[in-house]
Computed example of a mutant assay.
Amino acid sequence: MPDPHGFAYTERADGSVVITHHSRPATTLRGGRAAEFLAEVGDDPQEVMARWTGNYRHGNERTAKNHPRNRR
């Protein structure tokens, strides 16, 4: 069953790690990147997986949209 937050990961026998988001593959990590990810995941795996896939929000989208530099 998928995690209610959306992210899950599976470690494969070949050492690669597949990160899924809502049961769909988001990214596959191999070699050193997979080892680095597995060492980092622990306290809050949802946040770590969101960062590694690039699928996260910063919370400042509305502020940035209204900034004079971003208006056209």
Rank of each mutant, 00 (worst) to 15 (best):
residue 1 M to Y: 11
residue 1 M to L: 13
residue 1 M to T: 11
residue 2 P to N: 08
residue 3 D to N: 15
residue 3 D to C: 10
residue 4 P to T: 04
residue 4 P to I: 02
residue 4 P to R: 00
residue 5 H to E: 06
residue 6 G to I: 08
residue 6 G to A: 13
residue 7 F to Y: 10
residue 7 F to P: 00
residue 8 A to P: 02
residue 8 A to T: 09
residue 8 A to D: 15
residue 8 A to N: 12
residue 9 Y to I: 01
residue 9 Y to H: 06
residue 11 E to L: 07
residue 11 E to F: 05
residue 11 E to H: 04
residue 12 R to E: 07
residue 12 R to M: 08
residue 12 R to W: 06
residue 13 A to N: 11
residue 13 A to C: 03
residue 13 A to T: 05
residue 13 A to I: 05
residue 13 A to L: 07
residue 14 D to F: 10
residue 15 G to C: 08
residue 15 G to P: 08
residue 15 G to D: 07
residue 16 S to D: 10
residue 16 S to L: 04
residue 16 S to K: 03
residue 17 V to L: 10
residue 18 V to S: 02
residue 18 V to P: 00
residue 19 I to Q: 02
residue 19 I to C: 05
residue 20 T to Q: 05
residue 20 T to Y: 01
residue 21 H to R: 04
residue 22 H to W: 01
residue 23 S to R: 09
residue 24 R to T: 00
residue 26 A to K: 02
residue 26 A to P: 00
residue 26 A to N: 02
residue 27 T to D: 00
residue 27 T to A: 10
residue 28 T to L: 14
residue 28 T to M: 14
residue 28 T to E: 14
residue 29 L to M: 13
residue 29 L to H: 12
residue 30 R to T: 15
residue 31 G to S: 09
residue 32 G to W: 13
residue 33 R to C: 11
residue 35 A to H: 13
residue 35 A to C: 12
residue 36 E to F: 13
residue 36 E to V: 07
residue 37 F to T: 10
residue 37 F to K: 08
residue 37 F to G: 09
residue 38 L to Q: 11
residue 38 L to T: 13
residue 38 L to A: 13
residue 38 L to F: 09
residue 38 L to P: 15
residue 38 L to D: 13
residue 39 A to R: 15
residue 40 E to V: 11
residue 40 E to T: 14
residue 41 V to N: 08
residue 42 G to T: 03
residue 42 G to L: 08
residue 43 D to E: 14
residue 44 D to A: 14
residue 44 D to G: 08
residue 45 P to Y: 00
residue 45 P to Q: 01
residue 46 Q to T: 12
residue 47 E to A: 14
residue 47 E to L: 09
residue 47 E to N: 10
residue 47 E to D: 11
residue 48 V to D: 11
residue 48 V to S: 05
residue 49 M to I: 06
residue 50 A to I: 02
residue 50 A to K: 04
residue 50 A to Y: 03
residue 50 A to E: 03
residue 51 R to S: 13
residue 51 R to P: 08
residue 52 W to Y: 14
residue 52 W to G: 00
residue 53 T to N: 01
residue 53 T to P: 01
residue 53 T to I: 02
residue 53 T to D: 00
residue 53 T to M: 02
residue 54 G to E: 04
residue 54 G to C: 07
residue 55 N to V: 03
residue 56 Y to D: 04
residue 56 Y to M: 07
residue 56 Y to Q: 05
residue 58 H to Y: 04
residue 59 G to V: 03
residue 59 G to E: 06
residue 59 G to D: 07
residue 60 N to D: 15
residue 60 N to S: 13
residue 61 E to R: 00
residue 61 E to G: 01
residue 61 E to D: 09
residue 62 R to W: 03
residue 63 T to Q: 09
residue 65 K to Y: 06
residue 66 N to M: 13
residue 66 N to G: 15
residue 66 N to D: 09
residue 66 N to T: 10
residue 66 N to F: 13
residue 67 H to R: 11
residue 68 P to A: 08
residue 68 P to R: 13
residue 69 R to D: 15
residue 70 N to M: 05
residue 70 N to P: 02
residue 71 R to A: 08
residue 71 R to M: 08
residue 71 R to E: 07
residue 71 R to F: 03
residue 71 R to V: 04
residue 72 R to Y: 12
residue 72 R to L: 12
residue 72 R to V: 12
